[in-house]
């Protein structure tokens, strides 16, 4: 009952907390050409754990902004304009905060929960694994 597979269907969060689950979901998203959404989600978690005193943190914030938020990709297109502006202003003013990507991460997570996660649970990739 509490097998990894049972947990995968419980929630997106449970799926992403499992190594095999996260890997398989990424394979699925790559095929759907939206793996960036998952990479961004993990990048937000990694960023939140970074030490703000570390000089790397500003560079990582800039890299996340450039690669996912500003770019016309799957993440940039799904974020609300106000959310993108908020992050852009933070990066420009070098006002780095552990929670600066939280809202954006929530928006992408909701989008994955409503779309990709549901499709994944019905995909051949998932069913073959099961």
């Amino acid at each position: 009952p509490d097998s990894p597979l049972a947990r995968w269907t419980k929630s997106l969060h449970s799926l992403l907390g499992d190594q095999d689950g996260a890997r398989l979901f990424r394979v699925f998203l790559e095929r759907e050409r939206c793996a960036d959404a998952l990479d961004f989600w993990f990048a937000c978690n990694g960023f939140r754990q970074m030490d703000l005193k570390d000089g790397k943190t500003l560079r990582v914030a800039k890299a996340i902004y450039k690669r996912y938020v500003e770019a016309d990709g799957v993440v940039g297109r799904r974020l609300k304009p106000a959310t993108k502006t908020f992050i852009r202003d933070n990066v420009k003013r070098q006002q780095i905060d552990s929670a600066m990507f939280d809202q954006a991460q929530t928006e992408i997570q909701t989008s994955m929960e409503e779309n990709a996660y549901q499709t994944f649970l019905q995909s051949d990739i998932y069913l073959e694994y099961v």
């Binding site: 990048a43 890299a63 996340i64 450039k66």
Partner: peptide
């Protein structure tokens, strides 16, 4: 100095689940 891509990859990897 690490490249931007390396930093980003390191950040993503640090958040990936490690064990089953």
């Amino acid at each position: 100095i690490d490249s931007e891509d390396d930093l980003l990859q390191e950040c993503i990897s640090s958040a990936m689940p490690k064990k089953k």
